[in-house]
Design a protein around this nucleic acid. Structure first.
Lengths: 218, 218
DNA sequence: CCTCGTAGGTGTAGACCGTACGCCTAAACT
DNA sequence: AGTTTAGGCGTACGGTCTACACCTACGAGG
């Protein structure tokens, strides 16, 4: 009976993501998103409570691929096309962690939003559930699962944040070398390393610490 | 010859910290800080380039205690007053990580700023250098130190961020239970755990993963 | 003691932001 | 065709940061 909606929240999220990818996160505003959709600013408020909710939609959209690809990996593993993905809990966890990194890496500007809304956005919650499934499969009981999840999520959030800042930092380390010799060499080493390798390396460290030793899969 | 300065950057940082502690991070603005010092807004720009720099000063001030207490611990250990603090590299690392958590915990509102500026603020750099010293003492060579530093810093940043959000979240987990059973129990477990214990537990996990097994000290 | 120059402090104003409120109107069901 | 419901728009308010030009208080040199 009422007038039909001419926009969807998905379209709005996509427009916001376009703005972020093109002009960076600081450019994200109700005005710019509305302009991207050829609408006036206030039109958005018919679909979204406030900016907070819009950000949540963007995060959900950007993190969508994580689950899609995880699901396709799982389906593929059922068909034994991608045996590596199903080799074992440890390998599956590693894949999940790397999928999250890739999803965020595809839209770097979203990272601060993802960090802020990872607790209230469906995609992120589903991702965590997947982690827990793998942890359960590895034989961890509930308390150890909770502890392991905390360690893994903390690492991922921190590592992504570090990587993001390294990418957007205004080259801070000018006065570092003399005062902090160890730090200087460490930063140099890090700058010379492939970020993806550094991420996976740290992830493996955490998995080792959880007692999920390198199994037959990897 | 010129007119002397009537303020110090330290005073400005302290005023900003007062504002944050009293009214929360969103209340931080050039206006509120200036009001705290009984000055007009623009007076601050004689001491600070922009808001960015002010935030950096606040982080530096808030993180100061980490280094002071780490130094006093070290002095104390020299006098054998606090043997536990000098028991070994692993114990020292754990203390450094916990000191960082306590420093941020003393001013919860600063956390987002600390995360954003941890790379450009002297206190944070000195803290990292201390970590590297302990790692070197543990026998790790330069590449492994860089890798270990990355894992540790990532974990700390992520864990603090998680803790901060758990404290300020508007109770999101309403729809979680049915859709994500594993996550629901994990969140319940986490909510029932002392944050300090959860933090230390995760830190120990990372240290284990780094091969710094539980030594004689702890 | 007086003057002078430097730098501190201030006021104004511009360009943004998010969003509360009220109006008009287009669409679809009765 | 009529009614009703929501969509879209315009305006406006209060807030942010900060560029710029102005006045003035202070300490040093004479």
């Amino acid at each position: 009976m009422p007038r039909p909606r001419s926009l969807t929240t998905h379209q709005i999220a996509a427009a916001a993501l376009t703005v972020i990818d093109r002009d960076g996160l600081p450019a994200l505003s109700m005005r710019t998103v509305a302009a991207e959709l050829d609408r006036r600013t206030m039109a958005l408020y018919r679909y979204v409570e406030d900016r907070e909710e819009l950000e949540c939609l963007v995060v959900d959209l950007a993190l969508g691929p994580v689950l899609d690809r995880a699901a396709s990996d799982r389906a593929a593993s059922d068909r034994a096309d991608r045996p590596a993905a199903a080799a074992g809990p440890r390998a599956r966890l590693l894949v999940l962690l790397e999928l999250m990194r890739e999803a965020v890496g595809a839209h770097p500007g979203v990272l601060p939003l993802a960090v802020r809304h990872h607790g209230g956005c469906p995609s992120a919650l589903r991702w965590r559930e997947r982690l827990l499934e793998a942890l359960a499969e590895a034989g961890l009981d509930a308390p150890r699962r909770a502890s392991a999840l905390h360690a893994l999520v903390s690492y991922v959030i921190g590592a992504l944040e570090l990587e993001h800042q390294a990418a957007t930092a205004p080259t801070v380390g000018a006065s570092v070398p003399e005062t902090f010799p160890l730090l200087a060499t460490a930063l140099a080493t890090r700058a010379a390393t492939d970020p993806a390798l550094a991420f996976t390396d740290g992830a493996r460290t955490v998995l080792d610490g959880l007692g999920l030793g390198p199994g037959p899969g990897l």
